[in-house]
């Protein structure tokens, strides 16, 4: 009995000594640091920092400047896409065709307000309200978009802020604004519906069932109606018709939440104008000939019809449901980008 116990004691002593030695040795060397990542935030951070957005804007500005100088759209796709690319290309063509009589639209890139989405998904869209351009026209509202992670941000479109338009309050770029779905509930109408209704209002004017849902008078609508009236007046002189349709472009709609629970909605639309004549002829204006892609030579005379398409970018403020205020149109761009005729 005794020997056994003694052995055990010896062993226990040995183990204890080993433990102490190990502890002492490990105590001397600090432990390996272990990564302690910050907790993943419940709300995603803004997709870009202000610096990043500025950097993107500067690059966009550089591309535009280069394109403007050469009136060449060749390099534009690197930083332009969607309506912006189409419009700018058309503008270059027009400018080239007219010898500079119709200058391109100034697009300043100095930001005044940023609406940066907070999301981890793509595509990502952010809205930039720029300073007033040098020609003292109204500030532009730029839309930057990144379709995929490996794609660059591009200038997707721009719009001129309408006279008297007031931007809704939005979250600061450091916080980020939640992107909203096209069918986002909680608004007086979903973004998709708003665009569709507005198209109807443009077409039918006050006769539209939705006219009351939009603040009036709306300078853009007034401009559209005035243009339409002018063409109709021209047509009226002879025997012909002028029709114009307005339609939202699928997939060209996105919305950001505003601070008051409403939405800032940007939508692409097209305005299709068709001028048909019978028994007379139409001289194609050089601007339209320039955007026809060669289909219409400059100075051509059309016997039947002339069709041209405007690319539109319209920005809405959609108040939250129950706010009792109408949807406001904040800004819009409207430029013909194609023409055809016979």
């Amino acid at each position: 009995m005794r020997p056994v116990r003694r052995v055990r004691t010896t062993r226990a002593t040995g183990v204890a000594l080993a433990l102490v030695a190990a502890l002492g040795l490990t105590g001397c060397s600090p432990e390996l640091p272990v990564p302690v990542p910050a907790a993943a935030p419940a709300v995603p951070p803004p997709v870009t920092t202000i610096e990043q957005t500025d950097r993107i804007l500067q690059d966009v500005g550089a591309v535009l400047t280069a394109g403007d100088a050469a009136l060449s759209a060749a390099d534009l796709p690197r930083r332009l896409s969607g309506p912006a690319l189409a419009v700018r290309t058309a503008e270059y063509a027009v400018a080239s065709a007219t010898g500079g009589a119709r200058p391109v639209t100034a697009v300043p890139v100095a930001a005044q307000t940023l609406v940066v989405p907070s999301t981890t998904q793509w595509p990502r869209t952010q809205i930039v309200v720029t300073e007033q351009p040098d020609d003292l026209t109204s500030p532009r509202l730029l839309v930057l978009r990144q379709d995929t992670p490996r794609a660059a941000y591009t200038l997707w479109g721009w719009a001129r802020l309408l006279p008297g338009a007031q931007m809704p309050p939005t979250a600061t770029p450091a916080v980020g604004s939640a992107p909203l779905a096209a069918d986002e509930p909680g608004l007086v109408a979903t973004p998709t519906d708003v665009v569709a209704q507005y198209a109807d209002v443009l077409s039918n004017g006050d006769a539209s069932a939705f006219a009351a849902g939009f603040a009036a008078p709306d300078p853009y609508r007034q401009q559209i109606e005035a243009g339409r009236a002018r063409y109709q007046g021209v047509v009226a002189e002879g025997t012909g018709t002028f029709t114009e349709t307005y339609a939202p472009v699928p997939d060209q709609l996105f919305a950001h939440a505003t601070a008051d629970g409403g939405a800032l909605v940007v939508a692409g639309m097209t305005t299709s104008s068709t001028l048909a004549v019978t028994g007379s002829s139409l001289a194609v204006p050089p601007e339209l000939a320039a955007v026809s892609g060669g289909a219409l030579p400059a100075g051509a005379v059309l016997r039947n019809n002339l069709a041209f398409t405007y690319t539109d970018v319209v920005v809405f403020y959609v108040p939250p449901a129950g706010a009792g205020t109408p949807v406001r149109v904040l800004g819009a761009e409207h430029f013909f980008t194609s023409a055809s005729g016979s």
């Binding site: 272990v34 990564p35 302690v36 990542p37 910050a38 993943a40």
Partner: peptide
Amino acid sequence: TAPGVLELE
């Protein structure tokens, strides 16, 4: 890198 690795030290 995994999150937090850059802040190891």
